[in-house]
Computed example of a mutant assay.
Amino acid sequence: MELKIVEVVAEVKDGVVPLGIMNAEQAMNLPSDVDVKISHPEDKPGQTDRFLDRNEFGQMHAHPASFVD
Rank of each mutant, 00 (worst) to 15 (best):
M60Q: 10
D43N: 12
A27N: 06
T48C: 08
I38R: 04
I21M: 12
R54F: 02
H40L: 01
E42T: 12
T48N: 05
D14K: 14
A62E: 13
P18L: 02
T48F: 11
I21T: 15
M28H: 03
I38A: 02
E42Y: 09
D49Q: 12
R54C: 00
V16T: 12
L19S: 04
V12A: 04
G58C: 00
A24L: 07
Q47C: 08
N55V: 10
M28K: 00
E25K: 13
D53H: 04
G20P: 05
L19F: 06
A62N: 10
F57P: 02
A27G: 05
Q59S: 13
G58P: 00
D14F: 13
I21Q: 14
V34N: 02
V34S: 01
N23S: 01
G15D: 05
V36G: 05
V16W: 03
N29T: 14
H40M: 03
V36H: 07
V16I: 12
P31A: 11
G15S: 05
M60S: 01
Q47V: 02
V34P: 00
P41L: 11
A62D: 11
E25M: 06
P41F: 15
P18V: 08
D43E: 15
P64R: 07
D53A: 03
A24D: 08
V16M: 04
M60Y: 09
V8I: 11
E25I: 00
G46D: 10
A10W: 01
E56H: 07
L30I: 11
V9G: 00
V9F: 01
G20C: 05
K44V: 12
P41A: 10
G58M: 08
N23P: 00
A10M: 10
L52Q: 07
N55G: 01
I38Q: 04
V34Y: 10
F57W: 06
P64A: 08
E56R: 13
H63V: 13
E42A: 13
H63K: 12
A24S: 15
H40R: 03
S39M: 04
V12T: 11
A27C: 06
H61S: 09
G15E: 06
L30E: 02
I38M: 07
N29D: 14
F51M: 05
